[in-house]
Design a protein around this nucleic acid. Structure first.
Lengths: 225, 225
DNA sequence: TTTAATTTGTGAAATATATCACAAAATTAT
DNA sequence: ATAATTTTGTGATATATTTCACAAATTAAA
């Protein structure tokens, strides 16, 4: 029996609840892949056949809207992707694309179901993470729609700084257009706001490189909308 | 041992997976309540202590936004409410209020956890419903933000007609202001669109009573935004 | 390296929706 | 039943954001 999952450095909190035997079973039914930036790991419309575990890297969840592509959220490893796709419907309801070179494990759906059914602690961790996802989407719902563009751009920048990179100086992994799709605004408006923030000394921008110079001011903009 | 849950006519799909003993245990640790229209069954900010099962009736999930109350979704029985509240955080992240006289079971959180841990089919059903919730919020995310007000109002009306009342002739359970909060638009704009729809012969409106006269046209408006 | 393609920034004009204001209608309380 | 309160409809005006247009800058391809 393989012990590669047992030894995995990127083991999820849920997987750490599995027995050695269960980890062996998992190892035999999952495939680890290194994906290049821009690779689609889950395609909207395709048959949903696997759970994906983003071991390392960054991904976006996106969905085809009536007019343009809508980015639902940016996901930082480690996290399971595609549970709603696999359990919610026969075909994928959304796509997932990696934003930087990433490592992903594709887990056979029946194996995943077997683990859910045979290890209540594993199932419980999965339930916890689904609940947290739902809370997150509720919050997003309330902030994204009730703030105007400056507040939303500030939100994205703070999220990148705090959650994704843990630094005030980072290279944003998405284009201006993608920022716009994330906050439901036009590319041009996002550009303008970014320029404005730079003019006001809040940011230092050089292409995709962004440095937050005045985080307090940015927070204030986020809070006041 | 009480058999009231075993005999419950409104038993959830998840609960139907429970053994007779487990249903007895559930019956001893849950309280069924009849709530009058407008009652808050879960208050944002309060300690999350129970799972609520909306047995019969209709409820809204809402959250305090930076400026006004945001309605996240309208929930029709039967459905569990508050799982993300109870599992995601110590305090409630959102409120739930019934929109018509409803019946709700409050289930002790430890009992719920016990059932999750001891009945994998129950847990699996809960996972399924959480996944479906997430898919729903993704879809909402894409439609609500990419359509303008006519498309959004059409969406709400079609949802009421198809999912909630299964009829083209219904009394809408929320005020114009609440419709506005649901689609992130102003009350006045919602009023105007409703009047416009009536003028165009799509609806017949009399206060909260709404009759859809031309559903095809309404669908078209929904689809074309 | 040069060319082609894509991404980005910015002004001016167009537009959808919000806000303000107030009266009419409907609901609730007395 | 009457008064008080809340909800609703609608016009006029204000405003944030989009759209269009095009040049500059960046990135990818030949």
């Amino acid at each position: 029996m393989s012990s590669k999952c047992a030894e995995c450095v990127f083991k999820s909190k849920a997987a750490s609840k599995l027995t050695f035997e269960q980890l062996g079973h998992l190892a035999e039914n999952c495939a680890s892949v290194t994906l290049k930036k821009g690779s689609v790991l889950m395609q909207q419309g395709a048959l949903s056949s696997n759970i994906a575990y983003l071991k390392k890297g960054l991904a976006k969840i996106h969905i085809k809207g009536p007019y343009h592509e809508q980015i639902i959220k940016i996901i930082k490893a480690p996290e399971y992707l595609g549970l709603p796709n696999t359990f919610g419907d026969k075909i994928n309801n959304y796509s997932a694309t990696v934003l930087e070179d990433s490592e992903v494990c594709f887990i056979d759906i029946d194996t995943f179901k077997y683990l859910l059914a045979n290890n209540e602690k594993f199932a419980y961790e999965i339930i916890l993470s689904l609940c947290n996802n739902e809370l997150g989407s509720f919050k997003k719902c309330a902030t994204r729609t009730q703030k105007q563009i400056r507040g939303n751009v500030a939100d994205v920048l703070l999220d990148m700084s705090n959650r994704v990179y843990d630094s005030d100086d980072f290279e944003i992994p998405i284009s201006r257009e993608e920022i716009a799709n994330l906050i439901d605004k036009s590319r041009e408006s996002v550009s303008r706001v970014l320029s404005e923030f730079e003019k006001d000394g809040i940011l230092k921008i050089s292409g995709k490189k962004i440095e937050i110079l005045d985080k307090e001011k940015l927070k204030l903009i986020f809070e006041t909308g």
